[in-house]
Design a protein around this nucleic acid. Structure first.
Lengths: 250, 250
DNA sequence: CTGTACTGCGTAGGGCATAAACAGTAAATC
DNA sequence: GATTTACTGTTTATGCCCTACGCAGTACAG
C-alpha cells in the first residue's frame, strides 16, 4: 500500500499502485482496453471523433460504462496520450555524440506526433506524470549525460527540443489535414505567393514581397516535403545554439 | 472588381476586396462588430465560451443571425485571430541589431499570446493569409533585413521563432489555467520532484532522478516565473544558433 | 411595380458530456 | 447461511452545442 499520490484513480492504476477493488462483480473490461479503444478511434477519425459513445461503441458497451473506468473524458485523453507514447519509446539507441542522439530523439518525436497527430490537439495540463511520457523524457535527458551542462539546463534543453518538435508536427499536421480535406485555404497554398501579391502591395509589405519574389513558394508540389526541410533547418539552428552552450560549459 | 481569390467571402471583406451587396435590407451589424464580440467573449471566458449563441447574445441578436456574416464558426475563429493580431502589431521598433529586434519580436509575440491565449487553441489551417497576421510576419522578416541570409532562410527563421513562441505560450497558458482552476495535477506541480521519486525508481529513470536530486523543482512557488526563465533560455539558444548561421553567410 | 437578392430569425435535428437513479453481483462480515 | 457493502453495467434525463431549413420582411434594379 503506497502513500497517497493525489493522482486520479485511473492514473494510479496505470502506475500499478492501487490494488483492484476486490468486492463487487468482475469488470467486463480493463482500463487498458478502454484506452486502446480510444486510441484506435483517435487514429482513425482524429480527436474530433473521440466521443464517449463512439469509444464505447468500439467496445460494444454503452457510453456510461466507461465512467466506471475513467472519471471524465479528459482523464481518458490523458491516458490515451501515455498509451500512444507507449507504442513509441521502444528502441533507445546509445551510440554517437550527444548531438547525434539528441537529433535522433527529436526526429523520433516528430515521427511519433505524425503517427498520433491527435496528441497535439489535447491541452497539456501540467508536467508529464505518466510512465511512458516520463520514459521519453528520460531518454532525452540521457542524451545530454556526457555533457557538462547543469541539471536544470538539461531540463530546459529537453523542453526546448520537444517544444520545437511539437510545434512543427502540429503545423505540418494541420496543413496536411487541411490539404487532404480539400480545404480551400490549403488548396490556395500552392499559389500562396501569387495570392500574397494579389492582396498586398510591396509598399506595405516589402520584406514579404522580397521573400515571395525569391520564388520560395513556386513549384511546391508537396507541402510536406517543404516542412521536412524547415524542420531540418530549425533543428540544426537549435542544436547549434545548444552546442555553443555546451562548449562554453566545458 | 478584383479577380477571384478563392477565399471565403468574409475574408475578402476584411481585405476590402468585394463590394457590399447593394440590394436587400441594410445589415444590422458589421462583420467587425461580430468579430469583436467573439474576441470579447474569448477574452472573458476562453475559447470554450465562444458559442454562436453566446456571441450573438453579446450583440443582442440570435445565433442564426451571425451566419449572415460568417459561413461557419471556424470562419469566425479565423477572423478573431486576425482581429486579435490587429490589436497587437501597433508599434514596430526599428533600432538595434537584428538580434535585439528579433528578440523583441519574439517577446512581443509571447505577450500577445498571453493576452489572447485562446488563439493557441484554434487549429492552424494553413499559411497566414489575413492582413494583421501578415503584418506581424512582415515585421519579423524585416528584423533580418540587414543580414545576408537568403530569403528562404529568413522565412525559416521567422517560422522557427514563432513556433518557439507559440509552444511556450501554450504550455505556460495551459499550466497557469490548470493551476488557477485548482486542477489536482497542477497542485501537484509544487511537489513534482517528490511525486516523481515516489512513482519511479532511480534504476529505471536515472537521468530524471539526477534532475530531481539537483533540486530544480524545489521552492518553485510561481510556475509562471519558472517559465519566464525557460523562455529566456530557449530563445537565447535559438538566437545563438541563428547568429552562427548569419556569421557563416557573411 | 414587380422581381430579385438580400435581411433577421424561429424551429428543429442530431450531436455531445455527464448527473442521477436503479437493479444485479460478489466478496466481506457476522 | 444471511446480511451488508461495495462495486458493476445501463437507462433515462438535462442542458449544452452547431447549423440546415424555411419563412416573412425589405430595398434596390429594371
Amino acid at each position: 500500500m503506497t502513500e497517497d499520490t493525489g493522482l486520479p484513480a485511473s492514473f494510479e492504476m496505470v502506475w500499478g499502485v492501487r490494488d483492484r477493488p476486490t468486492k463487487g462483480p468482475k469488470r467486463g473490461l480493463s482500463l487498458e482496453q478502454v484506452v486502446d479503444a480510444g486510441i484506435r478511434v483517435a487514429n482513425a477519425e482524429g480527436i474530433g471523433g473521440v466521443s464517449m459513445s463512439r469509444v464505447a461503441g468500439e467496445l460494444g458497451t454503452s457510453a456510461m460504462s466507461l465512467y466506471r473506468y475513467v472519471a471524465s473524458k479528459d482523464e481518458l485523453l490523458m491516458l490515451m496520450i501515455d498509451g500512444a507514447f507507449g507504442q513509441v519509446d521502444k528502441a533507445e539507441p546509445v551510440e554517437g555524440t550527444w548531438r547525434a542522439r539528441l537529433d535522433q530523439w527529436a526526429r523520433i518525436g516528430l515521427t511519433a506526433f505524425r503517427q498520433f497527430p491527435w496528441i497535439l490537439r489535447i491541452p497539456v495540463s501540467g508536467a508529464p506524470m505518466m510512465p511512458h511520457q516520463l520514459r521519453y523524457l528520460e531518454w532525452g535527458l540521457r542524451t545530454l549525460g556526457e555533457t557538462s551542462l547543469q541539471e536544470h539546463e538539461k531540463l530546459s534543453v529537453a523542453l526546448l527540443v520537444t517544444s520545437f518538435t511539437r510545434s512543427y508536427a502540429l503545423l505540418s499536421g494541420d496543413i496536411a489535414a487541411a490539404y487532404q480535406a480539400g480545404n480551400p485555404m490549403a488548396r490556395v497554398a500552392n499559389d500562396y505567393g501569387e495570392l500574397i501579391k494579389r492582396l498586398t502591395t510591396a509598399g506595405e509589405y516589402p520584406a514579404l514581397h522580397a521573400v515571395v519574389d525569391s520564388g520560395v513558394f513556386e513549384g511546391e508540389d508537396d507541402p510536406i516535403e517543404a516542412f521536412e526541410q524547415d524542420f531540418r533547418f530549425g533543428l540544426d539552428r537549435i542544436l547549434d545554439g545548444i552546442e555553443a552552450l555546451v562548449r562554453r560549459r566545458e
